[in-house]
Amino acid sequence: MKKTTEKKVKRISRAGLARSVGGNAVNFIFLCIIAAFMALPLLYVISNAFKPMDEIFVYPPRLYVINPTLSNFKNLSSLMSQSWIPFSRYIFNSVFVTAISTFLQIIFASMAAYVLEKREFPGKRIFFGTVVISLMFTATVTAIPNYIIMNSLNMVNTYFALILPAAASSMGLYLMKQFIATSVPTVILEAARVDGASEMRIFWQIVMPLVKPAWLTLIIFSFQSIWSTTGNGYIYTETLKPLNYALSQVVSGGVARTGSAAAVAFIMLLPPLVVFIVSQSNILNTMASSGIKE
C-alpha cells in the first residue's frame, strides 16, 4: 500500500497531477483559439499602420501588409506640425503629469501602506476597508462629482486636475500594502526599533528599498491609466492637454485621415505593450500578493 502511494507521488512530480495527454492537447488548442481572438485585432492595428494608402483600401481587406511603408507616420507628423501648438508640448504634458503623479503616489501610498500593514492604531481597519471598496470607483465613475470638487478648489484647467486624483489612486495603496505584507519581514523592523531607529528612518531605509519591485508595477499601472486619459472635462486650455487628446483629434478627422489614424492607433498601443513585456515578471511578482483577504 505504502509503495503504491510513493509511486503515485513520484508520478505526480514528474508529469503533474491528474493530467492526460489528450486533455493537455485540448487545452492547448483552446488557448490558441483564444489567443487568436485576442491577437488578430492588434495585428490588424500594427499592419494597418505600415500599409500604404492603396493597401488600406484594398478589397478584400488583408490582415498583413505587402509593401510596408512609413508614409502614415510621415503624414501624421506633418499633420501635427500644422497645429498651432507644437506636438512636443502634448508629449511634455503627458510625461509631466505621469511623472509627478506617479512619484507622489509611490511615496504617499508606501507611507500609508507601511503603517496600515505593520502598525496597530485605531481606525486602520475602517480606512483600509474604504480603500478596498473604492477600488471599484475608478476615475471614470467619479469624474462628474470630482468635477464639482475641482471646481470649488479652483483646480479645473490646471495640471492639478490630472495629477492629484491620479496620485490618490486606491489601487496603488492597495497593491503596496499587500506587497509589504509578504515581502517586508516584521523581525527586521523590530530589530531596527530595538537599535533605536526612528519610524521615518525605518520607512526610508528599510521598507522603501524592500518594496522597490512594487514601485515598477505602480509606475506601470499609473502610466497605463494616464496614457489613456484625454483630460476632457477638466482641461480646456489647448496647451495643457495630454498627448492622447491630440492623437484622438486626428482619428476623428474622417476617411482622408485613415492612414494617420492607423499610425495613431499604433503609437497608442506600443508604449504600454513594450513596458509590459519588459516588466512582466516583476508585475506578476507584485500581483502575487494582490488578493483580498478578509
Partner: peptide, 14 residues
Amino acid sequence: IMYAPSISGGAYTI
C-alpha cells in the same frame, strides 16, 4: 497576448 487588449489604450477603435 491575453493581457495586451486591456492595455491597448484607444487601439480598440480597430
